[in-house]
Amino acid sequence: MAEEITEKKPVKKTVPKKEKNPYVWPDLPFMELMCMIVVMLVLILWSLGMDAPLGEIATPSRTENPAKAPWYFIGLQEILVYFDPWYAGVVVPSIIIVGLMAIPYLDNNPKGVGEYNFSARKFAWINFLVGYAMWMVAIVVGQFMRGPSWFFFWPWEPWDPNIHHAEVLLKNIPFATGLISLVVYFALFYLLPIIFRTKIYKQLDFTRYFVLMTLMALMYAVPIKMVMRQVFHIRYVLVTPWFNI
């Protein structure tokens, strides 16, 4: 008995087929039990085969280099290379959390519920997967390719600071150019979908459209900034007396 709540105007829903759904007992609890046993076995084998790491006793006077965060936070640590701490460590995670929470209220495409349906939700799938992939890539890079002083090493290279390529000199973009390029960057996100009359623009009202495009601009700014630094050796796009981006 799966109760439907339809307080709101009943979403246009074909009346559920009359054939009844199968009983939950005992099939589902049985599968859950199997699942639990398998997970428990995996966890026990994992724990028998591999010990949780324990370093030397904490010594505040001796810095650990590199000091790596646990893997699921290492993505944030990785973008610390590209942004100042207030942005990489505080603003980015906050935007991610708020942005994730906003998804159901931004996506007003009713299609695809309860099925893996890429073709009905191309835009949503692609952008979510890009963001998800960025997280994974940042984790892999941070976990396996960063050595002392957070220098980049390929996994097969020894962590020898001497083999490391000399530090390149980084430059900042002048204030006016930086400000204008930021404005243009955001404007592109707001305007391009309108100019090309994309589905996204037609489907969303102003608020949804504006919030969605802002979040997307912020998300794609991260890889763009990475490229700017790695390829064009740019440190800050915008330098102000109070903060730098």
């Binding site: 790491p53 904490a58 010594t59 001796r62 965060a69 936070f73 603003v91």
Partner: peptide, 24 residues
């Protein structure tokens, strides 16, 4: 566990708190 890994990871992590706009 209070080992070096723990100590420095949490040091790095909580230093972010000091970088919070307005409140850090």
């Amino acid at each position: 566990p209070w080992d070096q890994l723990a100590f420095w990871a949490i040091t790095v992590g909580t230093n972010m708190g000091a970088a919070t706009p307005f409140l850090g």
